[in-house]
């Protein structure tokens, strides 16, 4: 046929990926996720050694030689390195003051309207947990079950969970895309690297705050600033990549077919 055919693009209501793209999805999922999960599990002792050594050096600048590192076994992952440091309890006056500040903050923030409301809801959430924590220390400080080593243990295990989950979540999310396997694995690697650096900075800051300003801040930091913030960069990296992929394949007739 010598007549040139225009490419007729399928309406968005009907289009889907071609057979060629569909056939490799299951393989892609395992190929993208398992190597990273295995690598994390295998390298956990090394990563955590560096993690805690770095934290120890930074914290020693402020707390001197009282900052130590201990190892504790953890099934599957091997030895976990943890920070050991003397923390402090807040005084009753401090707890009262913090409670009042939290209550006032929540009342003021919850009265905000418009787009500020969505930010104020999050800040109110943090203040509520701070309020609960300060009341706990006001009335039953002897029952507080953690020291810094305990917090370090919680944080490190949460980070491990997140590092193992990131490849699974992103593999799932990127599974259906027509881009190359290497490229998608690169995105997962980028997210993991981001998580490592971010996690380290956050770890040192959290330990510094707890060490300097007492255990009262442990709960809000662990609950409000630990897992939720990790979703930001995961979704951010995903959205930028999706934008790039969408531009690249938008009019590629090889990857699309009609219903």
């Amino acid at each position: 046929m010598t007549i040139a055919k225009d490419i007729m693009y399928c309406h968005r209501a009907y289009r889907k990926l071609s057979e060629r793209i569909r056939s490799r999805q299951l393989f892609d999922f395992f190929a993208m996720s398992l190597p990273f999960v295995a690598l994390i599990i295998f390298l956990t002792p090394t990563i955590l050694y560096f993690f805690n050594a770095a934290a120890q050096h930074f914290l020693r600048l402020s707390f001197g030689n009282s900052v130590g590192v201990v190892n504790t076994p953890y099934p599957l992952f091997g030895n976990l390195s943890l920070i050991v440091l003397m923390g402090s309890y807040p005084t009753p006056l401090y707890c009262v003051g913090l409670s009042l500040v939290s209550i006032i903050g929540v009342v003021v923030l919850m009265s905000m309207r418009g787009i500020a409301r969505s930010v104020s809801v999050y800040v109110s959430f943090v203040l509520l947990i701070t309020l609960i924590s300060s009341l706990f220390f006001l009335f039953t400080p002897e029952r507080f079950p953690y020291n810094i080593e305990g917090f370090s243990d919680l944080y490190i295990k949460t980070e491990l969970g997140i590092w193992c989950t990131i490849p699974l979540i992103l593999s799932m999310s990127l599974l259906m895309l027509p881009s190359s396997l290497a490229e998608r694995m690169g995105i997962i690697a980028l997210a993991l690297l981001y998580s490592l650096i971010f996690g380290l900075a956050r770890y040192v800051i959290f330990l510094y705050i707890i060490g300097h300003y007492s255990y009262v801040y442990m709960a809000p930091m662990f609950i409000a600033f630990d897992p939720p913030l990790d979703t930001i960069y995961i979704v951010g990296i995903y959205s930028i990549y999706m934008s790039i992929v969408s531009k690249r394949y938008r009019k590629d007739s090889d990857i699309w077919q009609c219903s």
């Binding site: 919680l154 949460t158 989950t165 897992p227 939720p228 990790d230 995961i234 979704v235």
Partner: peptide
């Protein structure tokens, strides 16, 4: 328990 919050938000 800590992963729950991460998964819920994500």
């Amino acid at each position: 328990d800590s992963m729950f919050i991460f998964l819920a938000v994500a």
